Computed example of a mutant assay.
Amino acid sequence: MDLALLRTFVTVHRAGSFTRAAALLGLSQPAVTSQIRTLERQLGRPLFHRRARGVTPTAVGDELAHKAAPHLDALLRITEAEREDAGALRSLHIAGPPEILSLRVLPALAPLVGQGHTLRATLLADSGTALDGLASGHHDLVVTTARPRGGPFTATALCDEEHVLVAAPYWAALVDTGRLREEGPAALDGMPLVEIHETLPLVTRYWCAVFDTPPDARSLAATVVVPDLRAVRECVLGGAGIAVLPRYLCQDALDAGRLVALAEPSVPPLRTWFLVVRTGSPALAHLGRARDRLLSAAAHW
């Protein structure tokens, strides 16, 4: 059986789409369709059900993928090892929100440059756009809080991020922390708020987790909106108001007394980050190495 046909088949099986598979393989969609039809004729069985949006494998297709994919991945690892032995540079394309990529992910991957890798980062706050780019081959790894379910992706929990309600000392002194503990967010009515979006995504998550209620739009509205948590932190440090921030972004300022935590819930709200790759791609040596390095580094985040 032609290995090229099997490679195309496994790529379509993992991508769930002829279009995405064509982009990953560097082929046209008609070429991918033709190869799948050729393989189906050779086997005498349909391998995919054609749907309005993509394809789903038949039972025969699932069985063939289960048998063929590990062997194709092994051949790919051999090929990649030979390329590395020849000194070929490999580019790693990673996408995710600017804060975690800038402060955690890229520093963790930086040592790979000394091992013959080049790094290309795309700063994307929108998870859907990042995952679409991953599926179509524009990115190799995506860091996101949106865990994809199945399809062409494999997601691994990377780390948990604790959120903290903070303010500069001036504003913190105006908050009755006892009332905040007893009455909840009503104690914060009228306080200026800094957020990443008008819909108050971080505040809403915090309020629901800690106070068991969404924020009241009539008494709490953003006075500063900036789509970068580092800028949110700097605005709060400058006295613009209160904000919800990841602890890793504000711990140094808390330790120095430049920020004050307004609440210390016994169970702090957490957000989980996931490392997402295309299924099968860790068989590529440079992607597997990057994935392992990130998982190792994240154990200490």
Rank of each mutant, 00 (worst) to 15 (best):
D2K: 06
L3M: 08
A4E: 10
G16R: 03
S17V: 09
F18D: 03
T19N: 04
L25V: 09
G26H: 02
G26E: 05
L27N: 01
S28G: 15
Q29K: 12
A31D: 02
T33H: 14
T33N: 13
S34W: 13
Q35W: 06
L39K: 11
E40G: 04
Q42E: 15
Q42G: 10
R45V: 12
R45H: 07
H49T: 07
A52V: 13
G54Y: 12
T58G: 04
T58E: 10
A59D: 14
G61L: 05
D62V: 04
K67S: 13
A69H: 05
H71G: 03
L76H: 03
L76S: 09
I78Y: 05
I78R: 10
A81Y: 12
R83M: 01
E84R: 11
A86Y: 08
G87A: 05
A95Q: 07
G96D: 14
P107L: 02
L109D: 07
A110G: 00
T118M: 00
T118K: 02
A121D: 05
A125H: 14
D132F: 13
G133A: 13
G133M: 11
L134S: 12
S136L: 09
R147V: 00
R149P: 01
G150I: 06
G151K: 02
A155Q: 10
A155P: 12
C159G: 02
C159K: 02
E162Q: 13
L165M: 08
A167I: 11
A167M: 07
A168E: 08
P169Y: 03
A173H: 12
A173Q: 11
D176P: 13
L180I: 07
R181V: 06
G184Y: 11
G190M: 04
M191Q: 14
I196K: 00
E198T: 05
P201S: 09
V203K: 00
W207V: 01
P214W: 04
P214V: 02
T223H: 14
T223P: 10
V224C: 08
V232W: 13
R233N: 03
L237W: 06
G239Q: 05
A240H: 08
Y248D: 06
D252T: 04
D255K: 05
A256M: 01
R258K: 06
R258D: 14
L259W: 11
V260H: 14
L262S: 12
A263P: 05
S266M: 03
F274G: 03
T279G: 03
S281L: 10
A285S: 07
A290P: 10
R291V: 15
R291M: 12
R293C: 11
L294V: 15
L294C: 14
A298P: 00
W301R: 01
